[in-house]
Design a protein around this nucleic acid. Sequence first.
DNA 1: CTGGGCATCT
DNA 2: AGATGCC
Length: 681
Amino acid sequence: MDSSDEEMDGDDGQWRSQFTGPEEPATSGWSVNSPPGAPHRVILHFDLDCFYAQVEMIRDPSLREVPLGIQQKYIIVTCNYVARERGVTKLMSVTDAKEKCPELVLVRGEDLTLYREASHQVTELLSSFCPLVERLGFDENFMDVTEMVERRMQETPPPEGYSFSGHVYNPSNAEISGSDHPRLALGSHIAAELRGAVHSRLGLTGCAGVATNKLLAKLVSGTFKPNQQTVLLPEDVGHIMESLGGVRKVPGVGHQTAKKLHQLGVVSVKDLQLLPLPDLVKEFGGAVARRLRNLSLGVDDSPVTPSGAPQSLSDEDSFKKMSSEAEVVEKIQQLLSRLVERMQKDGRQPQTFRLTIRRYTPTNKWFSRESRQCPIPSRLGQKILSGATEDAVLPLVSLAMKLFHKMVDGGSAFHLTLINVCFSNLQSRAAGAGGKGAITAFFPRRSQNQDSSPSVDGRRSGHGVPPAPTGSSEGSEGEFGGLERNQSFFETLLERTDIPRSTQGCGSNEATRTPSQRLPADVDPEVFGALPEEIQKELLGSAHLISSTCPSVADALRLPTNKPPKTFTDSEGHKFWKDPSPANPATAVGPERLAGTRTLTERAAFPPSSDRELPGNVDPLVFSQLPLGIQRELRSEWRQQKPVLKVPSSKGSGRRSQGKDPKAVGGSSQHNNLLKYFKRS
DNA sequence: CTGGGCATCT
DNA sequence: AGATGCC
């Protein structure tokens, strides 16, 4: 077949005869996600436009009109299009950027919380249309929509004059008819609907690529840049591959492989295509060689693997220099505090802890990170989830320092430029703690959760289809007492309720079979049913209104962060949703936001200024010797301990800060543990 | 060769 | 535990 040659300019167009695909993959793994006899996969790549910048512009719409850059340390990691017009580019240093564009407005982007949340909302929204969604970073998603396409094919067979939605990658300006590629055409309409949904429901724009595999979908999605979509037809695979600048442009070919290839005289994609396979095998071994060769030809049989909830959670910070152990302890403690809080919201129990460092290397010897990991004692793992943050953090700091000393000889000088803490081996069991209410319950799991309990069900769905959320169905009914633990769950449910209403037109909701007609397919009815009735009603009612008012993700993103003063920080939440300020367009969606907004407002409002004294059994002197950062963190934690946010329901009291205040005693002793790190030895 | 994540393979 | 790759 050799689709490579023959530019077939203009004419001769009617020769799409004999391909079932541009290739005949050597491997049998072909219709990996498709039904056995299926013709062709239809793969979609979805890519948000300058994602971080978009989130910030939603938070503060006034940023839309100015050149905006998102800064991490000394780098502009992304920027809006106003800034791009003035020459700012993606990985530019702040100084260069300011030089190009003095008016550039900078927003700090080191804290990824908002971006991560918005990112998961996008993935979740997409997942509600079709379960096969794979994340790539925070701003890209792959989808295998083959089944959706096939269903539409059968429901409404393609009429003549079938059309594509959006652009078609068409270098030869050929006559294009959708009926020649009905599946891709349908895919393009699905892509348009999905982009529409993401825009109307979350307020985010992005590009989409439609093709027959992941590689091609990703490559083609960027051909028309902001907020557009493009289909790649099989006859143009050769063209798009060879139009890539060099091998480095092929996703999957990183720096190292590109270097090796360069040594072999391979620069262009065409070079790679033509390089004898044995030569490749010598350098890379059989598997990688084949993969590279295939990629160069536009062949990619890798499946769209549903990402589900992350397999690890980590937090890190980089810096110019860190050389004292006191600094290290403080930094680790600060990182761990945030990480533990994220872990709590996640609800799964980590079994492994890892500490990673990067040392300063004068002769820039690239990135070398070193890490040490260890199991987390299950008692400690439970503490992490139990909500007593500091009770878990302090022992973890201690654990981290042990790992640290496996890498850094205490007593000799060191110079670190990065510290990372990571929880992995996440177990969604959380015995009595209600592992079911967590956000992960709403994120279809890919991992057969290696339940420690003998699993009674041999359930193992065909492909990536989510098994029901974990947890034995009963036994956790009262678990929603503490709403603060489930607020993300709450928002999530809100955001994904009643999905494809806005995208009517083409036999809209396939993948979402709604049993109750209102509950999205992947919302566990049991979980939903466990909510207090009033909440259920509010959710359903508000969701309906919401879908018709096209809200953006703005509210969800703004409120929890309580960004500087941006208009509404007034702790008087009532004012806010009863009477949306016209000065704040993003919030002017009307009272139907009420249900979803309330918990957020409460959360944002509640821990304002109450500066308490230290808990009685904490020695002030000991406390005062702690690093200031730790003092601050501890105070903050103690402050947060006080108010117990409860949902107005009699059902099950929050098992949050159970009992008195056991942590004071333990905390104090932990401090002593902590202090030992300041004694040199 | 910058940033704060994530994943996979060895 | 590191290397590599992706954003």
